[in-house]
Amino acid sequence: MHKRSPSERIAQLFIHLILFAFAVCCIYPFIVTFMVSLSSEKSILFNGYQLIPEQFSTLAYRMVFQNQFIYTGYGVSILVTVVGTLLSLFICGMAGYAMSIQRVRYRNVVAMFFYLPMIFNAGTLPWYLVCTQFLHLQNTVWALIVPLLVSPFNVFLMRNYFATVPASLVESAEIDGCGVMKTFVKIIIPLSKPIIATVALFIGLMYWNDWSSALWFIDNTHLYPLQYMLYRIKSIMDFVRQNGAMGGTDMPAATFQVATLFVTIGPIVLLYPFVQRYFVKGIMVGAVKG
């Protein structure tokens, strides 16, 4: 075993101290924000944000969980995130796999069709008309899923990763009688867990944080996702605070917003540990090779 010299130990200690300081800088705002959600509105208005609030209060959280639309929003967001992530992974994966096969004719032409929307787009109005007049997505849960199904960036990430799979494996599977779909499911997917986990994280975050689709297409309150409800709550609380309605400083406007924020980020925070080990490998190989 290599014995570290005093200079190496000092350098390692110095690196650990830097990383520790960086971690504290990242965690400290999160802790302060959480303590704000447990503060009373008066203490926030008079004393500002503090690590240890002068007056503790759980009124904001009680108001959050007494709102029945929070539970409805959670259900809609979970449904949209799960269904949208699975469908988008399937579509982006199949498109990326098709473009990664060397013998597929016009695969570069197909890649160009995916590449052009990354640079040019037709604008908001044509997109809105297609979704409402041709696809008839207005006031349906599919309005929260379909417009975000295909991401050219994710397609190219998966294509570049699939291109690193040895062609001999695919040829062996075809000799054994596997078709294209069976080869993709039995060979490509098991070998591509890093990029699949990475892209799944990207897609899941996109669907979970999306609120603009509901703003454009949804009028039914029972179909509001969680993030759009957070946007509406913020607008209402800003109006309350500016106009002094509903009791002025007794209304937990700031603390309510922060409490709602912590309630909404819970599932996504829990998702990170499961995909973190795949993230670096997936994004590096998918972005560089091919």
Score class of each variant (00 low, 15 high):
Met1His: 09
Arg9Met: 14
His16Asn: 13
Ile31Cys: 11
Val36Phe: 07
Asn47Tyr: 14
Asn47Ile: 02
Gly48Pro: 05
Tyr49Val: 07
Ala60Glu: 05
Val64Arg: 00
Val64Phe: 05
Leu79Phe: 15
Leu79Asp: 01
Thr81Val: 11
Val83Thr: 13
Val83Gly: 06
Leu87Thr: 10
Ile91Leu: 14
Cys92Tyr: 00
Gly93Glu: 08
Ala95Phe: 12
Tyr97Pro: 01
Ser100Gly: 10
Asn108Trp: 05
Phe113Arg: 05
Leu116Ser: 03
Pro117Ala: 09
Pro117Val: 11
Thr124Tyr: 13
Leu129Arg: 10
Val130Tyr: 14
Val130Asn: 08
Thr132Glu: 13
Phe134Arg: 03
Phe134Trp: 11
His136Pro: 00
Leu137Tyr: 11
Thr140Asp: 08
Ala143Asp: 10
Leu144Tyr: 07
Ile145Tyr: 06
Val146Asp: 05
Pro147Glu: 10
Val155Phe: 04
Leu157Tyr: 07
Ala167Thr: 14
Glu174Val: 12
Ile188Asn: 01
Ile195Asp: 07
Ala197Tyr: 12
Ala197Met: 14
Ala200Glu: 07
Phe202Ile: 06
Met206Arg: 07
Leu215Ala: 11
Asn220Ile: 07
Asn220Lys: 08
Leu226His: 04
Gln227Pro: 02
Gln227His: 05
Leu230Glu: 05
Tyr231Ala: 13
Ser235Leu: 13
Asp238Asn: 15
Phe239Ala: 11
Val240Gly: 04
Thr249Gln: 04
Asp250His: 10
Met251Trp: 09
Val258Pro: 05
Val263Leu: 09
Tyr272Val: 15
Tyr272His: 07
Gln276Lys: 09
Ile283Phe: 14
Met284Tyr: 09
Gly286Ile: 12
